[in-house]
Write a protein that binds this DNA or RNA. Structure first.
Lengths: 265, 265
DNA sequence: AATATATTCCATATATTTATAGAATAGTCG
DNA sequence: CGACTATTCTATAAATATATGGAATATATT
């Protein structure tokens, strides 16, 4: 069988009309491994996941990930060298954030891959959440249909700043923490669809648990907001309402919300 | 500021109605790092990239990546432990393949992230290819428009087996190796759009170079076939025409084509 | 059954990564 | 300016990863 490899060679031998160099010699894969280096360490994935949700100070990151400051800082340097995160000085503080939308997509792809391939991941998510959530997901297409016909109420259960940075059109902001206080506003006869940050986020499943306990018919959206964007669907908000960092390219990107989340505050 | 972290905790403290465990304790990030471990090594990325294009024997992989058999085998074991690749015995040979579509998506996301964030990657791709390709890409939307109105000829310049495993509707199979021999079949007055495997593949850029030298108006499609699929656009072929491996779930997935590509053959 | 072939396992020297403590730097605030 | 704070840099010991040669295993062929 004849086969042309990605570098233009055929079956490992040089091609007839050779390109100057091939991908292997070019060092391309070494460059890709720079990014791979970030996700080889579980703590770095955790930090990156946090940063995909918003800007944070080093201390906030260290606290959230149970690391010493020096260790957290070292991990952040690795991520900076791979250009996956950027910093902004805020007084004495240094605030880190994900460097671009592709970073969040990559983390999302990692999560979805892990969920699809590693039974352990699915099991962990099942154990943490209490119900059989994965069987009760609403597809984006189904949600769009039902929203149009007014059959459902859509709840965005993420923190308010994330809702303001962009949400599904028609969705109501209902941070998980406020859900129980506002249950009276919900019509028990209308189905509820909750969504959050994505396949590894547990806010929506937790919200669904709460709602079901009270007798509501509630389900989660498949995936979350990042995947909704990636599917090219309409996003509401994103500009007005929330003060963005005013950085180049800021706008509807969820990781450039105004406040640098900090442990002390 | 109040903030609920991904694990349901608020500002690092346990939540009011606590879930049994949080994501951090659950070992979820350790699981994600199992996958990260695969892409920390440039040779493994190279192998995975090869496997996303088709099933291959260990020897073929070792030759293509300039590794000793034992080293290639060791890398493949790491990838197997992360469940990113699967094997099939073919006589004395062992054929490896990417385990599912998500694997290819992940590699694709890695490539796109690297290209977006690392100037070095863009530079390498510019140097290998000879022209200013990145400025001359056709978007998927534009291509769809022009195909409908018959303004363009779409060339799939990947190897035939990959075309048969699924291609853009209306595209003509024209493996790069056969392009020059078939130039006479192309109308010089009609624009040509070439596509290949994705953002890191050089087949389409090389084809565009050949065509431009001969005076054709030729451009590359942004990204490649995997991204076309991911965008949810129609895919032609995929079932008939090519003998697939007959494995569970095989069908329109490009990595499960019939022949196990081998160095010797 | 015996031989040949392809692949994986094992042992090992070398190199890299990790977490951490302590020192150094860069910024704020009075 | 000087004290103070947040972060990064430096050094280090323990752990882990890498490539490789040679042995072991599994399958095909005769």
């Amino acid at each position: 069988m004849e086969y042309i490899a990605i570098d233009g060679t055929r079956n490992g031998t040089p091609p007839a009309n050779a390109a100057p160099v091939n991908l292997q010699q070019s060092g391309l894969y070494e460059q890709l491994a720079r990014i791979g280096k970030v996700v080889v360490n579980p703590k770095r994935i955790e930090l990156l996941d946090l940063l995909c949700q918003g800007e944070r100070s080093v201390e906030a990151l260290a606290v959230a990930s149970s690391l010493k400051m020096t260790t957290a800082s070292a991990h952040l340097q690795v991520m900076r060298q791979a250009r996956l995160v950027e910093i902004r000085r805020d007084g004495a503080r240094v605030c880190y954030r994900a460097a671009s939308e592709e970073v969040c997509r990559f983390v999302s792809a990692l999560g979805m891959l892990a969920r699809a391939r590693l039974a352990e991941v699915e099991q962990i998510l099942q154990e943490i959440g209490t119900g059989a959530r994965s069987t009760e997901r609403v597809s984006r297409a189904e949600l769009l249909d039902k929203v149009r016909s007014g059959e459902v109420v859509v709840l965005d259960v993420r923190p308010t700043v994330e809702y303001q940075a962009g949400h599904i059109p028609g969705a109501v902001s209902m941070p998980l923490e406020h859900l129980e206080a506002h249950l009276d506003d919900l019509d028990p006869d209308v189905e509820v669809v909750a969504y959050c940050r994505g396949p590894l986020c547990l806010l929506a499943p937790q919200a669904v648990d709460v709602l079901r306990e009270r007798g509501y018919h509630a389900r989660c959206l498949e995936d979350g907001m990042p995947e909704w964007r990636q599917a090219g669907l309409d996003v509401a908000g994103g500009q007005g309402g929330v003060v963005l960092a005013g950085l180049p390219g800021s706008g509807d990107r969820p990781f450039e919300v105004s406040a640098c989340i900090d442990g002390k505050q």
